[in-house]
Nucleic acid binder design. Structure first.
Lengths: 145, 145
DNA sequence: TTGTCACTGAGACTCTGTCTCACTATTATG
DNA sequence: CATAATAGTGAGACAGAGTCTCAGTGACAA
């Protein structure tokens, strides 16, 4: 099942209508790279109003099928992601994003919780770096240009 | 030495002038709680233009004497913080903020780096929870209306 | 096929932040 | 002290992200 099918299912489950505009937004989102801005979606879903794109993306956030990605420069992008709580590792070179859930944030939270006497309930973590391709001196652009 | 003195020193060191407007912004910032918005500073530094407040805070960010705090609801606040790279633990109850630098983010980064083959260069981490006072049922507001 | 109401598009609006531009104040220098 | 150079300033226009309003439309159940 594709992400779009899953999303449509979740919409239906929650009693939301599957309208033409929503379908166009979903298709536009599916055609985006790792992460995207609302504006990019507006431009690639012709005929759909800006407000509707925002509304749809907000709805998808609520349904946990889209998540926010905080980029290095402080701008907020979006990303299709049907898993639950997770974090991002964003490549500064090509923009590729890895989702990860496995890593040991809990350990860190345990440490801090006992050190500060806080009851820790939530967290936000983004990591930035270079994927192996970008780190190894951009083998994608060998010698021309 | 107070934070203000330190900040004034750093301004001078970098060849920035210490003008009346800057002084008023610094005083306003010093009078803010754990974290604040630019708008709050604008309101409490009467007579200083909005643009100047923004410019001053941007300057203070550059000088690493103020940092951004990403709140739980996605809004960006600011905070005086003269230490270098650090993270925040924000109390959802009273808004109190703990800075921490000691915790073992490096270990986590090491794990991920080998798992994903990324060269990890930076990260952003915020934690949310309740401080001991807020967690223990708000002893600050006992019974009066 | 019809009624209901969730959804829509347009555009005004808000909020955060930046830019421009003429003006002002600080600082170094004669 | 006078003055020049220029960093800094305030007002307000502008920009980008997102929300709200409101009349109209279209999805879907009956």
């Amino acid at each position: 099942m594709s992400d779009i099918d899953l999303i449509e299912q979740r919409l239906a489950l929650r009693g939301h209508r599957l309208t033409g505009s929503r379908r166009r937004v979903l298709e536009a989102i599916a055609g985006q790279p790792a992460h995207f801005t609302v504006d990019e979606v507006v431009h690639s879903s012709a005929g759909v109003g800006r407000a509707t794109v925002f509304r749809t993306i907000r709805l998808l956030l609520d349904l946990n099928v889209v998540c926010r990605v905080l980029l290095d420069d402080g701008t907020l992008h979006y990303r299709v992601s049907v898993h639950g709580h997770h974090h991002h590792l964003v490549c500064r070179g090509c923009g590729r994003v890895e989702d990860f859930t496995t890593c040991d944030v809990k350990q860190l939270i345990g440490q801090l919780s006992s050190a500060t006497d806080y009851q820790i309930e939530g967290h936000w973590l983004e990591l930035y770096g270079r994927c192996s391709e970008c780190a190894s001196g951009a083998p994608l652009v060998p010698s021309d240009g």
